[in-house]
Nucleic acid binder design. Sequence first.
DNA 1: TGCGGCACTGACAAAGTTGTCAGTGCCCTG
DNA 2: CAGGGCACTGACAACTTTGTCAGTGCCGCA
Lengths: 110, 110
Amino acid sequence: MPVSKKESSACPIDAMLSVIDGRWKGTILWRLSERPMRTGELRRSIPEITERMLIRHLHELVHDGILVRRQTRTMPPCVRYSISPYGLTLVPVLEVICGWGRKHLQKKHG
Amino acid sequence: MPVSKKESSACPIDAMLSVIDGRWKGTILWRLSERPMRTGELRRSIPEITERMLIRHLHELVHDGILVRRQTRTMPPCVRYSISPYGLTLVPVLEVICGWGRKHLQKKHG
DNA sequence: TGCGGCACTGACAAAGTTGTCAGTGCCCTG
DNA sequence: CAGGGCACTGACAACTTTGTCAGTGCCGCA
């Protein structure tokens, strides 16, 4: 059921990457690090993503403890995703990754 | 020809991950961060890897400027890979990733 | 002469990941 | 009442990444 292949590795690098791995997970976390969002809202903010992949990724991130899913009403459903306290420990890591990535892009294009 | 799909993204996170992405790249960098190695030596140190994937990954890492390939003699070929100065800037990032990954593994199994 | 090692390549098949599309039950708007 | 949105699911196809296997030219060992 996992989207990422590295799920069961004992290597800490792979363990971390398995949480991030998935075509859209980086983008999703980036969006949610600004503020909590509803499913459809998030989908519209990432134009190329498909609903199916968005939901798969969201559920995996919830399963990994990175996101929290909160359902406020029952009908019509209103689901809101936010970064969990545990997920917040990931944000600085993402920032380090992002910092290096920025320099790497500069190196390639300039 | 790229192993990773995220090659052409403008997102810095994806740009960084595209360098790391590939079933064995983390392990390869881990080995080479200790010391330079020859192709066959590296292959034997990662038992499950296939020769083809090892070489594909190595060549991509060279292409991305992370590794340096040095060919000392001509016949029989003796090729040695080492982390480039640019690649060294990646090592602290890997350490941050590894640190979080270690905690994540503990959380899952303890 | 036969065998294995060296670093590497190509054709092809098997996995794995993502996308497409139809459908769920309920509500609200026109 | 038709049509759309809500969050989500399942079957299936398309695409991407890995693995399998055979083969390259040269050397050294027996």
